[in-house]
Each structure stands twice: as C-alpha cells, then as structure tokens.
C-alpha cells in the first residue's frame, strides 16, 4: 500500500476546485432553473387565481344582469299585459258603442220599414176601400142621390166663406157669355135647376146664364164650371179625393 503526499494534497485541491466548478456550472444553474420554473408555476397559479376571481366576478355580474333583465322582463310583461288589457277594454267599449249604434240604426231602419209597410198597407187599404166604395156607390147611384147632392151643392154655395165668395164673384164678373156650365149624372128637375140658377145668381150678385148637361161619369151629383173655377158635389170627385188626397192628408 503506497501513500503519496503529493497525491493527497493535489486531491484536496482537485476536490475543492471541483466543488467550485460544479457549484458554478451545475448546482447554481439547475437550482436557478428550478427556482425560475417554480416562480413561473407560482405566477401561472397566481394568474389562474386572478382569472378565476375575474371569472367569478364576471359570473356574479352576469348573474346580477340576468336577475335585472328578468325583473325588467317581468315589468315589461306586466306593462304589456296592462296595455293589452287597456287596449282590449277600449276596443270592447268601441265595439260595444258601434254595436249600439248599429243596433239603433237597424232599429230605426226597421221602424222606418215598418212605417213604410204600414203606410203602404194604409194606402193599399185606402185604394182598396176607394175601389170598394166606388163600386158600391156606382151601384147605389140614383136620381135621388143625385137630387140630394144637388141640394148639398146649393147649401155649400150658400155657406161658402166670404173670401171665396168674393173670388168667385170677381171671376164671374171678368168672364163674359154663358160662363157657367152645370153637369149632373142624371137629368135635373126644373125646380132644382131653378134653385141652382138662383144660388149661382146670388153668388155672382147678378143673373148668369147656366147651361145644364148630363155626364154619367160623375156617378151622382153636380159639377159646375165657372170659368177657371170648378165647383163639384159629385161622387166621382169625392171618391178621387178620397183615394188620392185622403191618404196623404192623414199624415
């Protein structure tokens, strides 16, 4: 077994140098890299935690927004519902008013139509009545009725209002010649013709020549033409008046 002091000393120096070299080229760089990685990992963890906090904050913010939006939606829904109900009420009211108006219009129209029907029925009844009466009077017409109507004619002349009497008198004065033409349905007796002549003379205030004629279309009665005036007391004119004028006169 050999022991060399030079080797001993050099090995001590070699080892110390090796310690320095490895510390410089191995331990320090490796530990530094590990420390940098650790720092990077810690930084990544810190960033991840920061992002997580931010994400949580965003989540909370969005949840609050959702809640707010939900409340706004509820509020808008309620407002829309109220508006719809109000609009529904307005439209129902307007429709009801329109229905009432239409109903009143239809009722008025129905009443008017009913009135028209009633009037038409009345007119038809009057026409039918006139025809019936005309047929009846045509069958009943006779010289007696004719004489009676002549008497009524004379009475009516005597009871004419003063204004008409004056107007007739003026018309008879302006006319010249035989202006009075008296027509009857049946031939008049002499005394009755004389009475008529006297009544007319009294009306005119002077004697006026009268021409008597027979017209069977009168059915019964007298018709006197005094110029532009026509005085009648016959059944034909009475029936015409009844059928044409009476229905309108009832309004």
């Amino acid at each position: 077994m050999q022991y060399d002091w030079t080797t001993f000393v050099l090995e001590i120096i070699n080892f110390l140098v090796l310690v320095w070299l490895l510390k410089h080229f191995l331990y320090r760089p490796v530990m530094g890299a590990i420390a940098r990685r650790q720092a990077a990992v810690e930084q990544s963890i810190a960033e991840a935690q920061t992002r997580e906090r931010e994400a949580r904050a965003l989540k909370t913010q969005y949840e609050n927004r959702l809640v707010s939006w939900e409340a706004e939606k509820q509020k808008a829904g309620a407002a829309l519902q109220a508006e719809l109900e109000a609009e529904h009420g307005r439209r129902v009211y307007a429709l009801d008013a329109e229905i009432q108006t239409e109903r009143a219009r239809r009722q008025a129209l129905a009443e008017h139509q009913e009135e028209e029907r009633r009037r038409a029925a009345e007119e038809e009844a009057v026409v039918q009545g006139g025809r019936f009466v005309a047929r009846l009077l045509a069958r009943l017409a006779s010289p007696e009725i004719d004489a009676r109507l002549a008497d009524l004619f004379i009475e009516d002349l005597q009871r004419l209002p003063e204004a008409q009497r004056q107007a007739l008198r003026t018309a008879l004065t302006e006319d010249s010649g035989p202006a009075i033409r008296v027509m009857s349905a049946f031939p008049l007796a002499e005394e009755r013709q004389g009475a008529i002549r006297r009544a007319l003379a009294e009306l005119a205030g002077r004697d006026i020549p009268c021409a008597f004629a027979v017209d069977g279309s009168l059915l019964a009665g007298i018709q006197a033409s005094l110029g532009s005036w026509v005085l009648s007391a016959d059944l034909r004119d009475e029936l015409r008046f009844f059928t044409e004028v009476a229905p309108h006169g009832s309004d």
């Binding site: 090995e11 890299a33 990077a40």
Partner: peptide
C-alpha cells in the same frame, strides 16, 4: 504526478464539460 491525479483531472474535466453542456440551455 500519479495516475490517480491524472484520472481525477480527467474526471473533473468530464464532469465540468457535462455540467456545462447540460446547463447551457436550461428552459422552463
């Protein structure tokens, strides 16, 4: 200088070169 010292130097050189090469481009 014995063979022991020479081998030691060779080992030191090898270790230092290896360490330098291994730690030359350390990355995360």
């Amino acid at each position: 200088i014995t063979q022991t010292v020479v081998v030691t130097w060779l080992l030191m050189l090898a270790l230092v070169i290896f360490s330098w090469l291994a730690t030359r481009r350390l990355r995360v």
